[in-house]
Design a protein around this nucleic acid. Structure first.
Lengths: 233, 233
DNA sequence: GCATCTAAAAATGTCTATATAATGATGAAA
DNA sequence: TTTCATCATTATATAGACATTTTTAGATGC
């Protein structure tokens, strides 16, 4: 098959495995591929119009990201996050987000702080609108945190945090639905921006912890509503 | 070629990619494959007596572990850790090891605490011997920390910490050479065991931080000695 | 009616071949 | 002598074929 059909960015070269990886990843995060669903190589190869090789390599990457689980000789299936694991991930994020905000407060340039402020404004504007697109909202939230991550100047930290956040994209829609939460989010983001601006490290840490803890509570509440929506594999 | 030649553990099934992965990983960590060295698929395939497919998939895994770097269309080479990146990794480990020891102090069973004590004794006995095997010593150290990690009951945390530790195995030999350091290590391990036994969380955290900070200093010293031994890629 | 065994179908693991891209060397021209 | 262009070599990316294993469905026996 021709490359141009599937390539998203014709400018730069991207291996097919990468295209397949991004495609599958998006489908999993959006819930189009449901937890437990099997990923069969031949089926996917036919569906995406590529051979099995790039499919296999994409699945390896997804496996390492924790989005799919491999069982030798029995193939891959979409990982099913238990509530326990969700808590595990958030606990790690809490530690690392604290580290990140500490570094960011110290290292971010004035220009970056302004970017952070802009991102916060974009986010709150989006929330202000009625009928706001949850996907857009999620992306704006992601953008906000990305700026902080980049401000750490620690590439490995950025990589790990992005990976951990990714684990939770599947619940993002769930928890952004809650109207009350959105106002809380704005307040927290606002407080973070202010603390960073004034280079008050401990205050920033305090708010960030609050931010993560609230996220934990909110997601758990959303899961309770959905009633056993993510109970085990 | 027959499977049995390469399989380490004939009991259980292990995909070839896994065998290749472990083989290459060990060679990189031991320094047999040096930073910057190219990993050519056909060469490796011939050397290990397998086809290119498992080699490719093993390289993908190594890439994700951060041990090799892929350049599209130009192949893979062994990752070269800069001093900057080493610092980055240790900073993350510091945060997560603190989290780990907190959880371990709270959650480890009495049986596990005894295991930890045993591991510590094994370690210090090994150090006591003259002509101690550095590989064995490294493994004993690994064992000690593994018990703490397992005690956290947080699988994702265990996975991330193991991965981060792995990044530093390449320097392990360097820093275990230093005789003075070994005594310090014993003292620190001892203090950790004691704090865990008595369930004194803050004390355990304090010692753990010290432990990591010392490690940072020691490795940096070792690198200074070696003079620009790991300067950039 | 249920369990067990067998056979067929399907999926994974592995291997090899072909196409494409990149690098390095060689030769010619300025 | 140096530089640029072309060609040959080499390596990767993808595809497709083959072998092995697992699973499922159907038939038979209890």
């Amino acid at each position: 098959m021709s490359r141009t059909e599937t390539t998203l960015n014709p400018e730069e070269y991207m291996p097919l495995r990468e295209v397949v990886f991004l495609t599958l990843r998006r489908q999993i995060l959006r819930g189009e591929l449901k937890p437990g669903e099997r990923l069969m190589e031949i089926t996917l190869a036919n569906k995406l119009g590529v051979s099995r090789t790039p499919i296999r390599e994409a699945i390896r990457k997804l496996e390492h990201e924790g989005l799919v689980v491999m069982v030798p000789r029995r193939g891959a299936h979409v990982a099913d996050i238990t509530r326990q694991e969700l808590g595990d991930v958030l606990e790690i994020r809490r530690s690392l987000d604290v580290l990140a905000i500490r570094r960011a407060v110290r290292l971010m340039t004035e220009k970056e702080v302004r970017e952070l402020k802009d991102a916060e404004e974009t986010f709150s504007k989006l929330i202000g609108e009625d009928e706001s697109d949850l996907t857009l909202l999620g992306e704006a939230d992601e953008q906000f945190h990305d700026i902080i991550y980049r401000g750490t100047r620690n590439r490995r930290l950025i990589q790990i945090l992005n990976n951990l956040r990714e684990q939770m994209y599947r619940f993002r829609v769930e928890y952004l639905k809650d109207i009350d939460i959105r106002q809380t989010l704005i307040r927290e983001h606002d407080a973070i921006v202010k603390a960073v601006e004034e280079r008050r490290e401990e205050e920033a840490v305090r708010v960030m912890k609050l931010h993560i803890d609230n996220q934990y509570r909110t997601i758990n509440k959303a899961l309770d509503m959905r009633c056993a929506g993510v109970q085990n594999a």
